[in-house]
Design a binder for these strands. Structure first.
Length: 420
RNA sequence: GUGGGUAUAGCUCAAUUGGUUAGAGCACCAGAUUGUGGCUCUGGAUGUUGCGGGUUCGAGCCCCGUUACCCACCCCA
């Protein structure tokens, strides 16, 4: 038996209503906040992610699905959508047309990691990007939008953590101070932290190992090293959240994995997700547009993991298995001589915009009725030899168990009325 | 890449200390007076017990290997 590749999942019909609910909410909320949907290719030049996400990140080092390795035209299945969005805006000169763009996406991403709960190789994200402006109110707007989305789909218990990580002006000094502070006691940190020390020292602050948390508890804080611009920005962001009445936690240990983040970073966690409890995350990336060849301009955005939203909903008992039945009228037939006529009726109803279906397996009337009931069709048309001889059919109201005779030529109009 | 766990019907799970034709519920199919759904009743089909080897008179059960999946580490949504 051939099965789906590791970390790739089918979305069977019974599971789809949950996904539709989530995607509909994402679109509705985004548009309420003034964001427009954009779609970009599933593949991009490998170079795009190497330059944006960062050469020494896990994603670029070992998690990309890359084709034509080494080739100049090397392509990679997108591991995230921020960089592609910036690329598309620059490529199509959207910023010339309008320097400020508010865009959102719902789509698939790919990372070649070991799957576990809440982590797949093909996963789906909903995200928004406010590109071309540096107002701290936008950082707050994106947080509010994400929270409105969680509220709309019904994810309970979302906790918001925020932090600032400075900018290229002030971050180097903080990094040096952090390194200087940690270096003397490096040997007492866990193996991972010792590795992080060289790769991305800020991640040491994110370590969950108790010993490391204790060891770094008196480490220097970003706040003490922020430049004036970053400090003012952070205050603007925090102030806006406070005025909006958002419950959030300022966490100096919060850091982000991608190179392009500057200033504001934030993360949403939800219960029930297992080890991967981040349901969404985002922040500001003020240098990415320039790096992609656009005129320097700020941007901010987030991404939400939709599989994790589904898990959170399931954990909260809010994602019951639903079945989606579109058929409104089920047309039964008795004997082969009425089958063609039944198909004609189905065709007519569909043309009139009424969702209709019939049996194609040559089953008994009883079986056809059972099937009509199973697909929850509110009405059943019964066409037997007797009815056909009179040029009429019986229309059965399944809920009322009542039947009436209707001339075939009046059927579409009669059922259209019943649908209203 | 590393560690741990699991593997029996379409699904969820049973199967005495190793012992006969591996069972149940749900789902599926067919019936229960002529051409009529749900509820009920009756009947029916369905398995290479993941795969390969070993021990044994005898293996779903014990041993070894292998594969797949799950969870976790790393990192991230």
């Amino acid at each position: 038996m051939i099965q789906a590749p590791l970390g790739f999942e089918d979305h069977l019909p019974d599971r789809l209503p949950v996904w539709r609910r989530i995607e509909d909410a994402a679109r509705r909320i985004s548009e309420t906040y003034g964001y427009r949907e954009m779609r970009t290719p599933l593949m991009e030049s490998t170079e795009l992610f190497v330059r944006s996400v960062g050469e020494v990140t896990d994603i670029v080092e070992k998690e990309m699905f890359t084709f034509d390795k080494g080739d100049k035209d090397s392509l990679t299945l997108r591991p995230e959508l921020t960089a592609p969005f910036v690329r598309a805006c620059v490529e199509h000169s959207l910023f010339k047309k309008k320097p400020f763009q508010k865009l959102f996406y719902v789509g698939a991403n790919f990372r070649k990691e070991r799957p576990q709960k809440g982590r797949l190789r093909q996963f789906h994200q909903f995200g928004v990007e406010a590109l071309g402006a540096s107002d701290a109110l936008l950082d707050a707007e994106t947080v509010l939008l994400a929270l409105a989305f969680f509220e709309a789909v019904g994810v309970p218990g979302v906790r918001t953590r925020v932090n600032t990580i400075g900018c290229p002006t002030c971050r180097p000094a903080f990094r040096d101070a952090l390194k200087a502070h940690l270096e003397p006691k490096l040997a007492r940190f866990c193996e991972n932290c010792r590795r992080r020390f060289d790769r991305n020292v800020f991640r040491v602050l994110d370590c969950k190992v108790e010993g490391c948390v204790a060891l770094s508890s008196d480490a220097p804080r970003v706040q003490a090293h922020l430049c004036d611009g970053c400090r003012a920005h952070d205050e603007g962001f925090i102030g806006a959240l406070r005025r909006a009445g958002v419950a959030f936690e300022q966490d100096p240990r919060l850091v982000r994995g991608f190179d392009y983040y500057t200033r504001t970073v934030y993360e949403f966690r939800a219960p029930g997700l297992g080890a991967q409890d981040a349901i969404g995350g985002g922040g500001r990336y003020d240098n990415l547009i320039a790096e992609m060849g656009g005129d320097p301009a700020g941007a901010v955005g987030f991404a939400v993991g939709l599989e994790r939203v589904v898990i959170a909903l399931e954990a909260a008992g809010k994602a019951p298995e639903e079945e989606w039945f579109p058929t409104r009228v089920y047309v039964t037939h008795i004997g082969p001589e009425t089958r063609d006529a039944a198909f004609d009726i189905v065709r007519t109803l569909r043309t009139a915009g009424i969702s209709a279906d019939m049996d194609f397996e040559g089953r008994s009337l009883k079986a056809q009725m059972r099937n009509a009931n199973r697909v929850k069709a509110p009405r059943v048309v019964i066409l037997g030899p007797d009815e056909m001889a009179k040029g009429e059919v019986k229309v059965r109201d399944m809920a009322k168990s009542a039947e009436e005779s209707v001339a075939v030529k009046d059927l579409a109009a009669r059922l259209a009325r019943a649908e209203e």
